[in-house]
Design a protein around this nucleic acid. Structure first.
Lengths: 199, 199
DNA sequence: ATGCTAATGCATCATCTGTCGCATTAGTGG
DNA sequence: CCACTAATGCGACAGATGATGCATTAGCAT
């Protein structure tokens, strides 16, 4: 949006109507049933407007994510690395299984829509960067050796959750977040992610 | 295919032409450029035939996978668990980055096509089941404690590779397969995947 | 209030995706 | 060889997706 854009009443109202419609359609019909036409109809907004402003389903989902505006999200801080990773994985599992799951839809859309892929990338970059503090705290507490590569640890801790729920499409298992967190913690404690231990 | 189907000359030839065309189109235009129309045109086969027989792009990719017929695939056997997991991850990394990557395309298509999703599921079930022998061997060698959950270990060892290459879309890193294998091995050695150690 | 223009609605068009009835060809068994 | 029918080609159609020119409405600055 350029500085001359009009965020006034109608523009904002259209956006709100459309994003509400996305959430409603996604909740009722799932990702497969989410079309630009159905969103426009439900929002009472003209198709051309939706195409012009959001481009494709991926663009819609990306904007739903933007509108959620989790700017105040904080990484978990439970007092232990394993607790932090478990809490983080619980959040991820929730985000992927809740109905409607914007996250799951965004991932699915990202294979077809550059807008969705970009939004996905930004979100993950932000979240992983923010979570690095969990690793810093663990090092300070003496739980982890200094020089632990935070990003690699975080990916190792969270990837199985995404893998099971998104790629393998297995039903959510309530133990998955904690199991995966424990695995990563054991590996990290053993120095799996320290850069100084690798020649 | 029912017992009365005709795998005779023309039917087999059409299939071969179409599957070759899929590979060629995927290699030249990527997943985004892969359409049923382009495949039919390139194969010199009528669109209606391709729709009838394969249904959608996912069906085409699933059949390419079937035709590859890796019935003789064996899990790696390097003499150590870490070596086996590293070799397995190298194969996965290769399969996801080679051009044309049937695997990457199948994953992308699986969010839109039940045929692709089903083919994906079967392939993963088969591969993970076949790889369990790697864990059995490690237990026999005394590398792992008895009662190690093979599936959980294999998912933990491979999920970061898929996560980085498929979901995060990061460029392939030649150290990724070995790093990830080492992480899973350290965790497994520490008992992360033993069912008896968890109350 | 007026002028300017961003944003939206409308109607229409083009292209893509998916399907279907009919005709033709190919493969099999007797 | 003939009969049967699975598989394919053809042409046409329907609906979905995406885009566009023009008209209208809305938001902002003066």
């Amino acid at each position: 949006m350029t500085p001359t854009a009009r965020p006034g009443g109608r523009t904002a109202r259209v956006r709100a109507q459309v994003l509400d419609a996305v959430r409603a359609e996604l909740g009722e019909h799932g990702f497969d049933g989410l079309t630009l036409e159905s969103v426009a109809a439900r929002a009472g907004v003209h198709r051309a407007t939706v195409y012009r402003r959001w481009g494709d389903v991926g663009g819609l989902l990306a904007d739903v994510l933007d509108a959620a505006g989790d700017d105040d999200w904080q990484p978990p801080d439970t007092g232990s690395l394993e607790g932090d990773l478990t809490a983080l994985n619980e959040e991820i599992q929730w985000a992927l299984t809740v109905r409607p799951s914007i996250m799951a839809a965004l991932i699915a859309a990202s294979f077809r829509s550059e807008k969705a892929a970009e939004a996905q990338r930004r979100l993950w970059d932000d979240r992983y960067a923010q979570c690095e503090v969990m690793v810093d705290r663990a090092v300070e507490r003496g739980e982890l050796p200094p020089g632990t590569d935070a990003r690699r640890l975080l990916v190792a801790a969270t990837a199985p959750v995404y893998h099971q729920l998104v790629l393998l499409r297995t039903p959510p298992d309530p133990r998955l977040p904690a199991d995966t967190a424990r695995t990563a913690t054991l590996a990290a404690t053993a120095g799996a992610f320290t850069t100084t231990l690798r020649a």
